[in-house]
Each structure stands twice: as structure tokens, then as C-alpha cells.
């Protein structure tokens, strides 16, 4: 595919004015429409699904994503995507996404919404209490500095910087029960 990034930014050269985006009606695509990407701010990203690492271009208008598709300049996928990559827009605009902190109390049957600062305070309290109660400094004369009561799982979907911070944070607590998707 010979299309270049510069061409991509001006896909159609359509001159019609007026913003167009039909997020609600599927009929939008049936009408002769001005450039879907007109007035959008574009940024590049890497696909969050498999390990190929395809590039995508995310177009946002007024801070809201309106289109996501393959990055034609990316040397691996050269604009192409699989069905998952092509569907990424539905993560940007999805009513099932969590937008509040959810809390389920012991023996509770429902979620409750709580504010961040309360959640962070509660979590830090539990981490500290568990760590203090289960911490082992020495074992058979060897300094082990291990927190025996907490596990941390996950990370293969996180960014490198997040993985690193999580790895460091877990070891700081003394966690050895540290595993993630690479093992399974």
C-alpha cells in the first residue's frame, strides 16, 4: 500500500464545511458526508491486543475519540489491522466502561460507589495492616523481609512504566507472591 501519512491526513480533500459525526445514527454513513476526520486531532498509539504491536491513529474531536484505524506509516502493519484492532473504537466509546470507583463490602450483594480518596485510604489501611500482620523479617537466621499475606497479579496489559512501578512497589512491600499472564 503506497498511501503515506500525509495523504492519510487528507483522505478525501472534501471541502464541505460543518462538523460531521453521527455517533447515534447508523445512517450517517449513507449520506454524502463531509470528511469524517475534519477538525480532529490525531495521535498515534499501539494496539492493546496481541503482541504484534501494530500502530494505529486515533482521531479525537473536542477531546472525544471519533475514529481509530491503522497507521499507514507503521512498518509492521502498514495501516492494516485485524478485527480486534478495527474494533478498538468501541473501547473509547462504551457504556460498559467503569467511570466510578466500585466498592463491595464484606458479605455485600451489590456494588457501592465511593470517592477515590476514601478508596485509597481504605486500601492503604488494609495493605498496611495485612503487611504488618504477616511480615517475616528473618527465617532460619536469614533476612528475608517478606510480606507473606499479599499477592499481586496481572500486568501484561499495562505499559512498561506501569509494570516497572508495580514490580518495584510489590517488592517494596515484600511481596513474593507476584505473578501475571506470562505464566499462564
Amino acid at each position: 500500500m503506497s498511501i503515506t501519512r500525509r495523504d492519510f491526513l487528507r483522505l478525501s480533500g472534501v471541502t464541505a464545511a460543518g462538523a460531521f459525526f453521527g455517533g447515534v445514527s447508523f445512517l450517517s454513513g449513507c449520506k454524502s458526508a463531509p470528511d469524517k476526520l475534519q477538525g480532529t486531532r490525531e495521535s498515534t498509539t499501539i494496539c492493546p491486543y496481541c503482541g504484534v504491536g501494530c500502530g494505529l491513529i486515533v482521531s479525537a474531536r473536542n477531546g472525544k475519540v471519533v475514529n481509530i484505524e491503522g497507521d499507514p506509516d507503521h512498518p509492521i502493519n502498514q495501516g492494516s489491522l485485524c478485527s480486534k484492532g478495527s474494533a478498538l473504537y468501541q473501547i473509547a466509546d462504551n457504556p460498559r466502561r467503569l467511570s466510578k470507583v466500585q466498592y463491595r463490602k464484606p458479605y455485600g450483594t451489590e456494588w457501592e460507589e465511593i470517592p477515590w480518596d476514601q478508596a485509597v485510604k481504605m486500601i492503604a489501611r488494609r495493605v498496611k495492616d495485612t503487611r504488618d500482620a504477616t511480615f517475616i523479617e528473618k527465617e532460619g537466621g536469614v533476612t528475608v523481609n517478606r510480606c507473606a499475606g499479599i499477592a499481586s497479579l496481572g500486568g501484561a496489559a499495562l505499559d512498561n512504566e506501569e509494570c516497572y512501578a508495580l514490580s518495584k512497589f510489590s517488592r517494596m512491600l515484600g511481596i513474593t507472591y507476584l505473578e501475571h499472564q506470562a505464566r499462564i
Binding site: M1, I3, D7, F8, L11, S12, V14, F26, L27, S28, G29, C30, K31, S32, A33, D35, K36, E69, G70, P72, N77, G79, S80, L81, C82, S86
Partner: peptide, 27 residues
């Protein structure tokens, strides 16, 4: 069934782009 009109592929000419979305995406 929603708008009671007929619909089908228009090769992205009604929602224009240089290469139609389907062919652009094919790996």
C-alpha cells in the same frame, strides 16, 4: 427495519476516504 430504507456498500464514496476502509484494513 429501523429507517425503512435500502442500504449497502458504497465503496466509502459517501463517507469519503482515499482507500475504502475494508481494503485499507486487510492484513
Amino acid at each position: 427495519d429501523i429507517d425503512h430504507k435500502s442500504h449497502k456498500c458504497h465503496a466509502c464514496v459517501m463517507n469519503p476516504r482515499e482507500i475504502p476502509a475494508c481494503a485499507f484494513a486487510c492484513p
